[in-house]
């Protein structure tokens, strides 16, 4: 065994961590090598001094007071871990974030699809019920005529229906306007 090898094993030799055959080799080397033996004794002496460091005792009063302090500090102290009954629901935990995002996306997609479906049905209803191809503009004269008797735009029956609330006037797309303003549509084209 070389000195270098022996020195690399000294700490383990002192700690008793070597296999028996390795330990015997270091042993033999130390018997014949004065330099390594010197290092071994220094390492051993250091270890002995460390092992024999003074043990301090602050005294019984200190131990009693410290114990009381610890117990006082912990008596009203709750556990930092949340009790099972107070744990957040599964959808509110970190792991469920992805699930929440997916659910949110599905709801949004549902709303979007519904809007598209309803929207696609809406123009057909209006066209079917009013039979109007072109929009019209309500002029000031029409506004003035509405509600007055004997005007040229509305028949007596339409004025009567308007007064009863069974006929509505409004923006393009409103149900009934085509019937009410046939003459107007003709004049504005």
């Amino acid at each position: 065994m070389t000195c270098r090898h022996a020195k690399s094993l000294l700490e383990d030799y002192i700690d008793g961590d070597l296999e028996l055959d390795q330990s015997a080799e270091v042993d033999s080397h130390l018997n014949i090598c004065k330099e390594c033996r010197g290092e071994y004794h220094q390492a051993l002496r250091l270890k002995e001094f460390l092992e024999n460091q003074p043990i301090f005792d602050p005294g019984e009063d200190y131990w009693r007071e410290t114990t009381e302090l610890i117990l006082a500090r912990t008596e009203a102290s709750p556990s930092e871990r949340v009790a099972p009954e107070n744990r957040r629901p599964i959808w509110d935990t970190g792991r469920a974030t992805l699930a929440r995002a997916a659910a949110s996306f599905a709801v949004s997609l549902g709303v979007l699809v519904s809007a598209v479906v309803i929207g696609s049905m809406q123009p057909a209803q209006i066209v079917d019920s009013t039979d109007i191809d072109n929009p019209f503009v309500m002029t000031a004269s029409v506004r003035d005529a509405v509600g007055t008797s004997g005007n040229e735009l509305l028949t007596a029956a339409e004025s009567s229906r308007l007064a009863r609330g069974t006929l509505l006037l409004g923006a393009p797309g409103m149900l009934g306007k085509g019937i009410a303003f046939r003459e107007l549509l003709t004049s504005t084209k």
Binding site: F56, T66, I70, R73, T74, S77, S79, E80
Partner: peptide
């Protein structure tokens, strides 16, 4: 005490360790 060489710090370690253990008892 052997790590810190200081009574006050060693005392703090003792108290704080037990308080932490208590809080993390579960």
């Amino acid at each position: 005490y052997h790590i810190l060489r200081n009574h006050l710090d060693a005392d703090e370690v003792v108290q704080e360790t037990f308080v932490r253990i208590y809080k993390r008892r579960e």
